[in-house]
Design a protein around this nucleic acid. Structure first.
Lengths: 252, 252
DNA sequence: TCCTGAATCTCGCCG
DNA sequence: CGGCGAGGTTCAGGA
C-alpha cells in the first residue's frame, strides 16, 4: 500500500490505451479504469436496447461502435449517419460487467430515467483516449450575430427604424427586436439565420397579435432572413406581415 | 500487377486495423485505404476549422478524436457532449494529405458548400473498423404512434369523435388529425409526444384559424400531449383551444 | 430537389 | 430544476 495514496506508484496515467481482441475481463478492467477520465471506444459484435422517453431495440448481432465519454455521453454508432443509432445524453452513468463471457454495458440516466443496455459477445477492440475541451468556443453567423448587427445598424432593416429593445419578453415568448418606425408604429422583428418557413411566420404573427391587442393599435411585423419559402411568403403576406431579405454573411 | 484486379491477392479486407503512434505516411495510407468502407478513428493533437453555413475554429492544439464514416459523416469530438464540436453531415468527401509531417484531413460537403479542415501534427492512434447498419429500425413511442392510436380509437380524445383525415395538408402546414365531433364541428387535433409548449399551441392555433376562415364556421382545436407548460396552457385557453392529456406509454 | 416538421432532438440561457 | 427557443440542428417523408 502506497502511503502517498498513488496507486500507480508515480506512473502517469497514459493518454492512450488499446486492446485488440481482448478477453472480456481485460476489456472490463480497462473500461472501469478509464471510464471517468477517458473517452472509451469499444468495437465488436453487439446487440443493444434503449428504453426511456421512447423505446427501441437493435436485435441483430452486428459490428457496432460504442463511444462513452467521461461526462456520461454514451453512444452506439453504426456505419452511417451523424447521429448515433442509440444513445444516452449526459449526464449518465456507465456500468460494465461480464457474465458468461459476455461484456455488458449499461448506461443509466436518472432524470428522466433512461437506460441503454449493450451486450457484446465478441469484443474486437477497446480503446481509451484522453481528450480535451475547447474553452471560449464561438460560432460566427448565428441568429444572435444577426440581431446584434441590426441593433447596431437598424437601417439594415429599414431607414429611420429605432430599436427599443432586444429579447423583449412577452407572455407568448421573446421578441428578437422591438422597434419603432418613423411614423411611430411599433415594429416586431423576428430574425432567422437561414431560410424562413411557416413556423417562423407563425412565430412573428403570434408576437404581433399579442402586442397589437395589448397596445390597442396597429403593430408591424418584419421577418428578417436570408430567404423565405414560397408558401411561408404567401402566408406572411396574407397576414399583412413583411419580409426583409438579409444575408447574415454580409454582416460579418 | 494482378490481372484479376485484386490488389490484395485474395486476402480478405480486415474488419479492424489499428496503428499506434504511426508515422504520418502510415496513417495516410490506412485512411485512404479504408475511408470508403470503414469507420475511421483518428486520435491525436489537432487544430480544426469549419466554414460553411456558419464559421468556427478550434485554434488550440489539443487531443481530440476524429470519426469519419463511409457515408461522408465527419466529426471532431471532444471530451464532453453528445454532439461533435465540429462536423460535416453526410454526404461529404474526405481528402487526406501529409505536408511537412502534418496530417491534414479535409471534409468537403458540396451543397451547401461546407468545409472542415483538421491539422494533426501529433498522431497518437488510427483505427479502421467495419460497422453494420440496422435495417428495419423502429422507435416506439413517437408522435406517429400517438396519431395511430387515436385514429384507431378516437375516444381516447373524446367520445363520439370521428376521424376524417390524418396528415391533412393545408397551405399553412399539415394537420395531424382532422375530425368531427358529435355536434358536427370540425376538430383539429395536434399531437405531441412530450410536454407541449407555446410553439405547439401556436401551431394548433394556426391550423384552427386557417380552417375556420376557409370553412366559415367554428372549428375546435385540441392539443393532445402528456402534459403542457403553464404558460402554454394559459395561452391555449385564451384562444378557446382545448387540452387533452394522453400518456403515449399508455397506448403501447 | 425543395419543403415541412418530428426528434429519445441537444444545448445554452434565464427564471 | 423547469421552461423556452436556437441550432452549422439532423433526419425522414412527401410533393
Amino acid at each position: 500500500m502506497d502511503i502517498t495514496g498513488f496507486i500507480n506508484n508515480g506512473e502517469q496515467t497514459p493518454d492512450l490505451d488499446t486492446l485488440v481482441d481482448p478477453a472480456p475481463a481485460e476489456a472490463l478492467r480497462l473500461i472501469n479504469l478509464r471510464k471517468s477520465t477517458h473517452v472509451l471506444l469499444i468495437y465488436g459484435d453487439m446487440v443493444a436496447s434503449y428504453e426511456g422517453r421512447a423505446k427501441s431495440q437493435l436485435e441483430d448481432l452486428m459490428p457496432r461502435l460504442v463511444i462513452s465519454k467521461p461526462d456520461g455521453t454514451f453512444m452506439v454508432h453504426e456505419s452511417n449517419k451523424e447521429k448515433p443509432r442509440l444513445w444516452n445524453p449526459p449526464p449518465s452513468n456507465l456500468y460494465a460487467s461480464v457474465n458468461l463471457g459476455v461484456l455488458t454495458l449499461r448506461s443509466v440516466r436518472v432524470s428522466p430515467r433512461e437506460v441503454v443496455v449493450v451486450d457484446i459477445p465478441v469484443i474486437r477492440f477497446v480503446g481509451a483516449v484522453r481528450l480535451g475541451v475547447t474553452s471560449n468556443y464561438r460560432v460566427f453567423g448565428t441568429e444572435e450575430d444577426l440581431v446584434n448587427a441590426i441593433t447596431n445598424n437598424p437601417s439594415i432593416v429599414e431607414d429611420g427604424l429605432q430599436v427599443i429593445a432586444r429579447e423583449y419578453h412577452t407572455i407568448v415568448g421573446d421578441i428578437d427586436i422591438l422597434g419603432r418606425d418613423p411614423r411611430g408604429n411599433l415594429v416586431v422583428i423576428e430574425c432567422k439565420r437561414s431560410q424562413a418557413g411557416p413556423e417562423a411566420v407563425n412565430q412573428l404573427k403570434r408576437y404581433v397579435e399579442h402586442l397589437s391587442q395589448k397596445e390597442g393599435k396597429n403593430v408591424r411585423g418584419i421577418l428578417v432572413a436570408p430567404s423565405i419559402s414560397s408558401a411561408a411568403y404567401h402566408y406572411l403576406r396574407h397576414y399583412g406581415l413583411e419580409f426583409r431579405r438579409v444575408e447574415p454573411k454580409s454582416l460579418a
